[in-house]
Design a protein around this nucleic acid. Structure first.
Length: 479
RNA sequence: GCUCCUAUCGUCUAGCCCGGUCUAGGACACCGCCUUUUCACGGCGGUAACAGGGGUUCGAAUCCCCUUGGGAGUACCA
């Protein structure tokens, strides 16, 4: 039987990086075993679910390169893939369980429920679970109240058993009999509840593996009970460790940028995000750390998940982004740079060969594409910010001499209509100053640098100068 | 409170299942050196960890128990 794995987000917000990580693991597991990866939208919470979020999530998944074989819009033979379009299925099965005596209508009001919870809290050592007062109400009696229009929910009849299952990452997990009471499967609004829909869909969609974050671990108990009541075979569960923030709490909005959209907006590379996220809780069999998603599909090993929570560290993400940036080809880099540069940036005026040259040269110096703009200033901005060192170099007598010489040379070049100095001309300048003017060492290089770039440090001069437009040089020299 | 999960450098982790090869390996960050007459890149090196206590064993990071710490869940959210 083919492996089938699903990612089932609820569209109540933007795609969270934790969600992206789970989706990626699902995708990887499915693909590693030649199976299918399915996207299912869990939108039974009508209050909070929004169509825009669903669209945005799908778009972000696409951006990450996590492609699903079946899902909303795309279709597939197990559809529909939106829970809001499968409501009749859940309701029918809920009532089927009622008929079989495995669930029952409950008429407890909200106030009565609250009172019970308070009482449980007051009695220390007691689990805050509810054991149904209506579970033994005669079916005819219940029907009478329903017909009379009394508000009700359907609760699952829990038999207080111990459940054990084998989790792919946790190993054997056991839940004691007092963990939950008779929980709701159908709300008073007639809407089914997450744990119920989830089981039905995973069953009907023939999922072989359920991969999700550890926060869902306690839900597994309820789900196991539902599988049993339905007479369905549970899938293999795999509860992946949680992503946490610097306070060691579950990663959430207050930890800063936590949605894929935010990283996308900041022009992070999807490959970098995938790569970093993948290594948070999973390790490469050969301990490789920089890779593309496609490359690890053949080696993706389900036994290499780490059990403990992983701290999300943006500094390391930045490192991965830098590494993946350096993996890009010249033309790819130029495209990325062009995306983030202002419309009127002079870099755009360069021909593509020169653009590539510049891109490949400066990529060493940045972690994010957005940092290129500032790096490019050394080429395109006449006057850069001064500092103490610049002032000191300026004060040297030799620096003035160098300036006068360079000025005269640039004037000659300009008279010839030259657009940019070549690396040869730069070498000539260097040779002349050294031999004829007898300036060498620090005064030579620092002096030249300050004269040519108005800065005391920066990229290799002999690379930079041929790329600097003559107009900028002219400006810097005060011609 | 109750239930479940979890514990190796500051962080991500390898090693644990199948005890000796672990004076615990790699990566990020940090520091130093080399390279570059600068910066960055790169190369080399350094600081830095088996939570604590009991067992079992000739031998434990690895197996067992307890303690402590951390986390999650505890909904008519997902």
């Amino acid at each position: 039987m083919s492996v089938r794995v699903r990612f089932a987000p609820s569209p109540t917000g933007l795609l969270h990086i934790g969600g992206a990580r789970t989706a990626m693991y699902c995708y990887l597991i499915a693909k590693a075993q030649g199976g299918q990866f399915v996207l299912r939208i869990e939108d039974t919470d009508l209050e909070r679910s929004k169509k825009e979020y669903e669209e945005k999530m799908i778009d972000d998944l696409k951006w990450l390169g996590i492609v699903y074989d079946e899902g909303p819009e795309k279709g597939g033979k197990f559809g529909p893939y939106r829970q809001s379009e499968r409501l009749d299925l859940y309701k029918d099965l809920a009532w089927k369980l009622v008929k079989e005596g495995k669930a029952y209508p409950c008429f407890l009001t909200k106030e009565e429920l609250d009172a019970l919870t308070e009482k449980a809290i007051a009695e220390k050592n007691a689990p805050h679970t509810y054991h149904g007062q209506y579970r033994d109400l005669a079916p005819e009696e219940a029907q009478k109240r329903i017909d009379a229009g009394d508000e009700f929910v359907i609760r699952f009849k829990n038999h207080q058993k111990t459940y054990t299952f084998n989790d792919l990452v946790r190993g054997e997990v056991t839940f004691g009999p007092d963990m939950v009471g008779d929980f709701v499967i159908l709300r008073s609004t007639g809407m089914p509840v997450y744990n119920f829909c989830c089981v039905i869909d995973d069953w009907k969609m023939e999922m072989t593996h359920v991969i999700r974050a550890e926060e869902h671990l306690p839900n597994t108990l309820r789900q196991l009970m539902i599988y049993e009541a339905l007479g369905a075979e549970p899938p293999i569960f795999c509860h992946v460790s949680l992503l946490i923030g610097h306070d060691r709490q579950k990663l959430s909005k207050r930890h800063g940028a936590t949605s894929v959209t935010q990283y996308r907006d900041q022009h992070y590379l999807p490959q970098a995000l995938n790569n970093y996220l993948c290594l948070l809780g999973w390790s490469h069999p050969e301990e490789r750390d920089i890779f593309q998603l496609e490359d690890i599909i053949p080696v993706f090993d389900l036994n290499r998940f780490n059990k403990s929570a992983a701290l999300y560290d943006i500094q390391k993400l930045n490192f991965f982004n830098q590494q993946h940036l350096k993996l890009k080809s010249g033309p790819e880099l130029v495209t990325h740079i062009l995306e983030v540069l202002p419309k009127d940036h002079p870099f755009r005026a360069f021909d593509s060969a020169k653009q590539e040259k510049v891109a490949l040269f400066f990529v060493e110096k940045v972690q994010l594409v957005t940092e290129f703009e500032q790096q490019l200033d050394v080429l395109f901005k006449a006057q850069l910010e001064s500092n103490e060192e610049v002032a000191e170099v300026e004060s040297w007598e030799t620096t003035g001499l160098i300036r006068d010489y360079i000025k005269s040379q640039v004037e000659v070049l300009m008279a010839d209509g030259v657009q940019n100095a070549s690396s040869d001309t730069f070498n000539e300048w260097l040779g002349y100053i050294k031999k004829e003017m007898k300036i060498k060492g620090k005064p030579l290089f620092k002096g030249l640098r300050v004269v040519l770039t108005t800065q005391a440090e920066g990229p290799d001069l002999k690379e930079i100068i041929p790329l600097t437009p003559m107009a900028i040089l002219k400006d810097r020299l005060g011609i």
